[in-house]
């Protein structure tokens, strides 16, 4: 069984990495600027927005999956796009789960030293955009762990991706849904072995990421 899984396993790992990479990338591109904006500015309703992102951090994945499913279902508003049961729609569901995490964490990190940085930026006559970039670069290390949290949530998620992705063999099956499938088949040991592989993948990504941060510091 393990041997016949070899080619398929590599394909599943490929889909998993592709999905997690794009979910993380898009979530960070959307969430970080918003988080910085919240961190550096003060306006009415800011507290509510932050509380909302905190609330959505607790959004059950299956619920996110259901919402995305209904949107892209045949009779849904976006049904005509015909992308249900594809990796693309899995990324969309993932972003729904991860963007609030990224916004909330980015806000927490950047708000700590925002006053000081804004002062510096004023002194240097920085534009608003440049100030935001300064806040991102000054908090680089902390923000890197936000990226890793986003990646971690993405690679470990199962409820939403099985619902909108469908766990289709050779197409939308990822590590977590493969583990679920093997568990349902009764192959508990094999499922556990897949779980360990998933952890190894995560470990590798973390090692690469920490090297990247170190390189950057030097």
């Amino acid at each position: 069984m393990l041997m016949s899984m070899d080619k398929e396993l590599l394909q599943i790992i490929g889909v998993t990495l592709r999905m997690s990479f794009f979910s993380t990338l898009i979530s960070c591109l959307l969430g970080m600027p918003l988080g910085v904006l919240l961190g550096k500015s003060s306006f009415k309703g800011k507290g509510t927005i932050i509380k909302l992102t905190g609330t959505f951090m607790g959004l059950p994945p299956v619920v996110a999956g259901l919402i995305v499913y209904m949107l892209f279902s045949k009779n849904g508003i976006l049904g005509s796009l015909d992308i249900l049961f594809t990796v693309e729609v899995m990324v969309i569901a993932q972003c729904m789960l991860i963007v609030p995490v990224v916004i909330n964490l980015t806000h927490s990190i950047t708000s700590v030293n925002s006053a000081c940085l804004i002062e510096t930026a004023k002194g240097l006559n920085f534009s608003k955009g440049k100030t935001a970039i300064l806040m991102l670069t000054e908090n680089k290390t902390a923000l890197f762990s936000v990226v890793l949290s986003a990646f971690g949530r993405s690679i470990a998620e199962v409820g939403a991706v099985s619902l909108v992705g469908g766990n289709i063999q050779w197409k939308t099956r990822v590590m977590t849904t493969a583990i679920m499938l093997e568990t349902n088949k009764g192959n508990f040991s094999f499922a556990l072995a897949l779980g360990i592989i998933l952890l190894l993948i995560s470990f590798t990504v973390n090692i690469i990421a920490s090297f990247a941060v170190k390189e950057d510091k030097q």
């Binding site: 393990l2 041997m3 396993l9 040991s189 094999f190 556990l192 072995a193 360990i196």
Partner: peptide
Amino acid sequence: MKKLLAVLMALAIVFTL
């Protein structure tokens, strides 16, 4: 890859037992 899988499988079985 196969060897790695075999090792992991063994580990998994130990956990299960």
